[in-house]
Design a protein around this nucleic acid. Structure first.
Lengths: 157, 157
DNA sequence: TTAACAACTGAATTATATTCTTTTATTCGT
DNA sequence: ACGAATAAAAGAATATAATTCAGTTGTTAA
């Protein structure tokens, strides 16, 4: 899949990343283009898998998900086999799963109600996964930033 | 701020988290309610800061941001002072900043073009921040999951 | 140079958002 | 339990937006 993006595409990406619910008419106004042309571009960006998804960010406190942690998971498996990673990804409390360099392991991001729920998850879900040797848990006290907005350059040259 | 959410709100949150660009008419159809009523609920959820933002997820490869890392940052500062965290958050490559328990530090998530750009960032931005004592970098080889969708319960009881 | 293709415009149509009034539910104090 | 006060929903009217498509312009490559 090819990603030939021009400056108009980048502007669209920037606006969409800042507010995914911006409407097409507003995009068109900002870009000084006809709405039909902008709509076509957005659809192409989706189809080319440049725009992957649109998420609403929900306040975790409002849903009683007060605890955030990162867990290093050491795994006994052949490098390249990502079965364990997929199993980790299936756990709903697990928001991110990253295969990391170094010692055959994963780094996962987990959101739970509280420390009890975390312990419960580790005992009942994590340790039940085949191949998991050990875990190391990092407790987040406070999150300063968590927007996951990537840098959209002015041009791609 | 109070968060009294009923089952309709939770359904809205679930749908919005799955697809932030769902339109109000479609929401209303799914809920079997009048569009005006649904619109009012969504606005209230925003106003109550339950719905915090709407993000488009952009394919980082399409923008040449091929490298993802997590960095532990040990900091020399009084616990509770979050000045360093705020400075870290200002760096555009830094997507997340978490204040972590244990050894006076932060865990940050960083996206760069490549390892060169990462080294550059560490040398020119990170180490220039007052109070940063040391860093430990975790390189992500592959990301299995990264949707950051939290669990929306069926009811809050 | 021109055929083929891609992107854009503008207009028409269909659908949605938004506002406001009326009606229906819910909550709360007594 | 009752009615007043408040909140939520419906419905209708209007304003905006999405979508489609035919026609135009621009770009690319033989």
């Amino acid at each position: 899949m090819e990603y030939k993006l021009d400056e108009i595409d980048l502007k669209i990406l920037r606006m969409m990343q800042d507010n995914a619910r911006i409407n097409n008419a507003e995009l068109a106004r900002e870009l000084g283009m006809a709405p039909s042309a902008v709509l076509e571009r957005v659809k192409k960006l989706e189809q080319k898998e440049v725009l992957l998804a649109y998420y609403a960010k929900i306040n975790p406190i409002a849903l009683n998900q007060k605890m955030l942690s990162f867990i290093f998971i050491k795994v006994d498996e052949i490098i390249g086999d990502e079965r364990t990673g997929r199993l980790l990804a299936e756990i709903p409390e697990v928001l991110e799963v990253h295969d990391i360099a170094g010692d055959d392991g994963y780094l996962i991001k987990v959101r739970t109600q509280d420390s009890l729920a975390l312990v419960h998850l580790m005992r009942n879900s994590l340790s039940k996964i085949d191949g998991v040797i050990s875990t190391r848990t990092i407790i987040v006290l406070q999150t300063v930033k968590e927007d996951n907005k990537i840098i959209v350059p002015v041009s791609l040259d």
